[in-house]
């Protein structure tokens, strides 16, 4: 594995902070609710530890999106919401919520896709302003299923064609509701030097 020294790990954490800072501001504007960030975590993994990344109950229902990011810092951006947290977003944004998985229609999916779009767009914009990178995102794909199945599908796809996996994970929450959301950025590890070069480290 490419080892990340402390300075580089800190830099990735800071990138996560700045990026998601922009993203939660956009979410607050959208919902009228104040969201706060937890300290970003850097996961550098061989596959042995992939299963350990599932910080939710592995068979609990989660709603997630994943979007491909192209440009100077390519990778995958993914959002995960425990079902109860997704319901908080639906209540705030469309004043109703699905009764269960069977009731999860296109309207509810498009709400989550739109939240992901806006947040990832702002995340990339914040990073772009700091680094001068050009970054484009593709429309998100949606899934609602067991936490471990959703997360592993995201990780395996990001791992494809690479020997190692790096994830910048940032959780966000709000004191006003029982809500927690998770954002993961999974950069292609072959492109990291470019980022560190721009940051001068």
């Amino acid at each position: 594995m490419t080892t990340l020294n402390e300075l580089r790990t800190d830099a990735l954490r800071e990138i996560g902070n700045i990026g998601l800072g922009g993203a939660v501001t956009a979410l607050s504007d959208l919902t009228g609710v104040l969201f706060t960030l937890e300290a970003p975590q850097i996961h550098q993994m061989d596959t042995h530890t992939l299963s350990e990344m599932c910080w939710m109950a592995p068979e609990s229902l989660v709603v997630g999106t994943v979007s491909r990011v192209n440009g100077d810092w390519p990778g995958e951006g993914a959002f995960l919401f425990p079902w109860e947290s997704a319901c908080v977003l639906w209540q705030i944004l469309v004043q109703m919520q699905p009764s269960g998985l069977d009731d999860l229609n296109e309207l509810y999916q498009s709400v989550i896709n739109e939240v992901s779009n806006i947040m990832l767009g702002n995340y990339l914009q914040a990073i772009s302003q700091m680094t001068g990178f050009t970054l484009h995102m593709e429309p998100p794909a949606f899934a609602a299923d067991m936490a471990m199945a959703v997360l592993s599908s995201i990780l395996v796809e990001a791992l494809y064609g690479q020997r190692e996996l790096l994830a910048i994970e940032t959780a966000f929450k709000t004191p006003e509701h029982e809500f927690k959301g998770y954002f993961l950025y999974l950069p292609e590890t072959g492109n990291l030097e470019k980022l560190f070069g721009v940051l001068g480290i």
Partner: peptide, 23 residues
């Protein structure tokens, strides 16, 4: 069996996986 792992049982025992997506 976690992602990428192998488990074995002989004569008795229950084996399985949790949360298979594309795996």
């Amino acid at each position: 069996a976690g992602m990428g792992e192998i488990v074995f049982a002989r004569g008795a025992g229950v084996i399985g996986c949790i949360g298979l997506g594309s795996c």
